[in-house]
Amino acid sequence: MSWLKKLGLGKQETLYDRARKAADPLIVASFREYGRQYGLAPTSKTSDQEILDIYQRVLTAFHQVATERGERLNAGIKNHIALYFFQPHESHPPEFFEQHLEYELDKYRKTGLRESYRKEIYPLELVGIPR
């Protein structure tokens, strides 16, 4: 801990920071439980931090393309898309994940969201948090 934080002079934790601290373990637990129940990734091959990084990266990227297209993707669809990307993360080299994400974003940008992505999932329900 820096001496500024010890004195209470460091960067103050924001409401967003506190919300993320509370939500992150729930996001990880819910996707792990979903994967366990349905025999899908993420498995133990993917660290908790990787789950959060993939979740954030995929949701942010698809949100941006949706905005470009004048569309809105609901949380359930975004969750389903994120779940889809855990599999290539676990079964392919890291560069494939990035290439595949860019390919899927470009496809969405040009032709719309794949029908297979339109399913809604709410993994937080598996850990007791209702929609």
Rank of each mutant, 00 (worst) to 15 (best):
M1Y: 02
W3G: 09
W3H: 08
L4E: 07
K5S: 01
K6N: 14
G8D: 08
K11G: 12
Q12F: 13
Q12Y: 11
Q12L: 15
E13R: 14
E13W: 12
T14F: 10
T14I: 10
L15V: 13
Y16L: 15
Y16P: 06
R18W: 07
A19E: 09
R20I: 15
A22V: 15
A22S: 13
A22T: 15
A23G: 15
A23R: 11
D24A: 13
P25K: 05
V28N: 00
A29N: 03
S30G: 04
R32Y: 06
R32D: 04
E33W: 05
E33P: 07
Y34I: 01
Y34D: 02
R36Y: 03
R36T: 06
R36S: 01
A41G: 05
A41V: 01
P42G: 00
T43K: 00
S44K: 05
K45M: 02
T46E: 03
S47D: 02
S47Y: 04
S47A: 06
D48E: 00
D48R: 00
Q49S: 04
I51Q: 00
I51L: 01
L52N: 00
L52P: 00
L52Y: 02
D53L: 10
D53R: 08
I54M: 01
Q56E: 01
R57T: 03
R57C: 00
V58M: 03
V58Y: 00
T60N: 05
T60C: 03
H63V: 05
H63Y: 08
Q64I: 04
Q64R: 05
V65L: 02
V65D: 05
A66N: 04
E68M: 14
E68F: 10
R69I: 07
E71M: 08
R72L: 13
N74V: 12
A75G: 12
I77R: 08
I77V: 13
K78I: 04
K78C: 11
N79M: 10
N79C: 11
H80P: 03
I81Q: 02
I81P: 01
A82R: 00
F85N: 02
Q87R: 02
Q87D: 06
H89A: 03
E90R: 00
E90Q: 01
S91R: 12
H92N: 14
P93R: 06
P94D: 07
P94C: 13
E95G: 10
E95L: 09
F97L: 12
F97Q: 07
E98G: 09
H100T: 09
L101V: 09
Y103N: 15
E104I: 13
L105I: 06
D106L: 10
Y108C: 08
Y108T: 02
Y108M: 07
K110M: 13
T111V: 11
G112Q: 09
G112E: 09
G112L: 06
L113W: 13
S116D: 11
S116E: 12
S116T: 15
Y117A: 10
R118W: 14
R118H: 09
E120D: 12
E120L: 14
I121Q: 10
P123L: 07
E125F: 15
G128S: 09
R131K: 14
R131N: 10
